[in-house]
Amino acid sequence: MFDTLKARIYQGNQFIKDIENAPIREQFRGLPILKDANCDNCSKCMNICPTGALKLNPLSIDMGKCTFCGACKNICSRNAINFSNFYKLASTSRENLIADERTTKESYEKTAVEVKKEITSMFSKSLKLRQVSAGGCNGCEMELNACSNVNFDMGRFGIDFVASPRHADGIVITGPITKNMAYALEDCYLAVPEPKIIILCGACAISGGIFQNSTEIDRSFLLKHPIDLYVPGCPVHPLTFINAILSYVRNKK
């Protein structure tokens, strides 16, 4: 008993107080900062990119495909590609995920998430989510689990993962959606009561990522249903995920 109390006192308070402005280490690879003027179209970066996220003329990176591996930055001899540690990467539109020369932290934060009244009025105080891993490698899954740990403590904002789709307001998909999971995913989505949202979490879910050319995936589910939120990353950082949801469901101003 006393040992338990001692261990508790020794731990202190672990939670991150201000999650919207939480500091992150500078090494974190987040929003790409591109300098098209430095680019000489040598296309080394394009060849090394494992997911085809990079395009030249003008230089752009599709964060929906990017695994944030940093290979393009390492190979570029002209310093045209850099990754900032800005972690609020989520967006409500797929096109918005494509970062080009004009993309800065400020401009991205302003336009990335479109707040809708019907969403904020329903979910701003409580949002229960059902997570479906459809070929996810356990990277995003572990980070989504970490969202609920004592450091990030997502539950304090009324956001939780629930066991049954019947209790959920939406689903979070990770992984490229394998053929073998396509049916279960559809089933799970149908079991969620209306109104419901779909969140795609990680490069695999958004675009197929590193598995986009696999013959074993079936992404037809995504064509049938509207996607509400795209959360890029490989895997998604807990701060990215929590801030994505907060900016989508909370009515600020």
Binding site: S133, A134, G135, G136, G175, P176, T178, K179, N180, M181, A184, F211, S214, T215, E216, I217
Partner: peptide, 8 residues
């Protein structure tokens, strides 16, 4: 369920 054809 997770089969993604990694070896190919």
């Amino acid at each position: 369920y997770q089969h993604r054809g990694v070896e190919n």
